[in-house]
C-alpha cells in the first residue's frame, strides 16, 4: 500500500510540473492558435537562470532563504523576457502568414535557444543546488513523500489558484479570455490584442520558469536539452486535457503524471518516454479535442 501511495504522490508531483509547463502551451494556443514549440526551451532557460543565480549567490555566501527568493524571481523575469522576445521576433511578423510558417519558425527558435545555451554555457549535466531543505516535520512520512514533493505540490496549487483569480478578475485576464474567444471582435471592442498576446507569453513563461526551478532542485541536475522532452510531455498533457482549456491542461497533466508514475513503478521504466509519445499519438488520432476541449467546426 505504501508503494502505491508513494507512486501516487510522485505521480502528482510529476503532474504538477507538467501542469506548470502545459499552461503556457494551452494559453498561447488559446489566444493565437499556435503550438509554441519553443516553450520547452523557455522552461529550460528558467531552470538555467535559476541555476546560475542560485549557485552564484551560494558561492558568495548568501543565506538559503534569500537564494531561493532571488533565484525564483530571476528565473521568472528572464524566462518571461525570453518568451516575450521570442514572440516578437519569431511569431508576430508571421501572424498573417500561412499556418506552416509560424510552426517552422517556432521549431527554429527551439533549436536556436537550445544551442545558444549549449554554446554559452556547457553541454554537461550540471549539479543543481538543493534549494529545498529536508523538513524535520516530514521525517515520519519521508519514505512516502519527500520534502521537495510537498513544496512542489503546494507551490503548484498556489500558483494555479493565483492564475485562476488573475484570469477571472483582472483587466488583462478578462482581455485574454475575450481574445481567446474571438480575436477580431476583441480588436473591435478596443482590446489591445498585441498587448494581450505579449502578456500571455510573459505569464506562460513565468509559470514555466517556476516549473523549471522546482523540477531542477527536485531532480538535482540540468542540462541544455531538458526542455525538449519536458516540452513534449507538457504538450501531450495539454492536448490530453483539450488544448486551449486551462482546467483541461491541469487535468491532463495530472492524468499523464499519474499514469507515467504507475507505469514506471509497476511495469518498466525503459519505455517511459515511448509511453508518453504513444499516448500523444493516440489521443491526437482518436480524440484530438481532448478531455475538456471542444471540437472545432470548420468554416467554409
Amino acid at each position: 500500500m505504501d508503494y502505491f501511495i508513494e507512486l501516487f504522490l510522485s505521480g502528482l508531483t510529476r503532474g504538477s510540473i507538467y501542469a506548470l509547463i502545459a499552461l503556457g502551451y494551452t494559453m498561447v494556443y488559446g489566444i493565437i492558435g499556435l503550438i509554441n514549440f519553443a516553450h520547452g526551451e523557455i522552461y529550460m532557460i528558467g531552470a538555467f537562470t535559476s541555476f546560475i543565480v542560485a549557485t552564484t549567490l551560494s558561492i558568495y555566501g548568501f543565506p538559503l532563504a534569500a537564494i531561493v527568493v532571488v533565484a525564483g524571481v530571476a528565473a521568472a523575469i528572464w524566462s518571461s523576457a525570453y518568451g516575450y522576445t521570442v514572440e516578437k521576433i519569431a511569431y508576430k511578423p508571421l501572424r498573417h502568414a500561412p499556418r506552416l510558417a509560424p510552426l517552422i519558425s517556432a521549431i527554429g527558435m527551439s533549436i536556436l535557444l537550445q544551442n545558444y545555451v549549449l554554446l554559452a554555457q556547457t553541454s554537461d549535466f550540471l549539479a543543481f543546488p538543493a534549494l529545498i531543505p529536508e523538513f524535520a516535520f516530514m521525517e515520519p512520512v519521508a519514505h512516502i513523500i519527500g520534502s521537495s514533493d510537498l513544496v512542489i505540490l503546494i507551490t503548484t496549487a498556489v500558483v494555479m489558484l493565483a492564475l485562476t483569480l488573475f484570469i477571472k478578475f483582472t483587466r488583462i485576464g478578462k482581455a485574454m479570455r475575450a481574445t481567446a474567444q474571438d480575436r477580431t471582435m476583441a480588436l473591435l471592442v478596443g482590446i489591445n490584442v498585441d498587448r494581450v498576446i505579449s502578456a500571455t507569453f510573459i505569464l506562460g513563461s513565468a509559470l514555466a520558469a517556476i516549473g523549471g526551478l522546482l523540477i531542477a532542485s527536485h531532480i538535482g541536475q540540468i542540462n541544455f536539452a531538458i526542455g525538449f522532452i519536458a516540452g513534449i510531455k507538457a504538450f501531450t498533457a495539454a492536448v490530453l486535457g483539450g488544448i486551449g482549456s486551462i482546467p483541461g491542461a491541469v487535468l491532463g497533466s495530472l492524468v499523464l503524471g499519474l499514469t507515467e508514475s504507475f507505469a514506471t513503478g509497476y511495469v518498466s521504466s525503459d519505455y517511459e518516454d515511448v509511453f508518453a509519445f504513444s499516448l500523444l499519438v493516440l489521443i491526437l488520432i482518436f480524440k484530438p479535442s481532448g478531455l475538456l476541449g471542444k471540437a472545432d467546426t470548420k468554416k467554409v
Binding site: 521576433i89 519569431a90 511578423p93 508571421l94 502568414a97 510558417a101 509560424p102 517552422i104 519558425s105 521549431i107 527554429g108 527558435m109 527551439s110 533549436i111 536556436l112 535557444l113 537550445q114 544551442n115 545558444y116 554554446l119
Partner: peptide
C-alpha cells in the same frame, strides 16, 4: 545554432 536561425529568418 545557424540551422535554428535559418528556419526563423527564412520564414520572416
Amino acid at each position: 545554432l545557424a540551422f535554428g536561425a535559418i528556419l526563423v529568418a527564412m520564414m520572416i
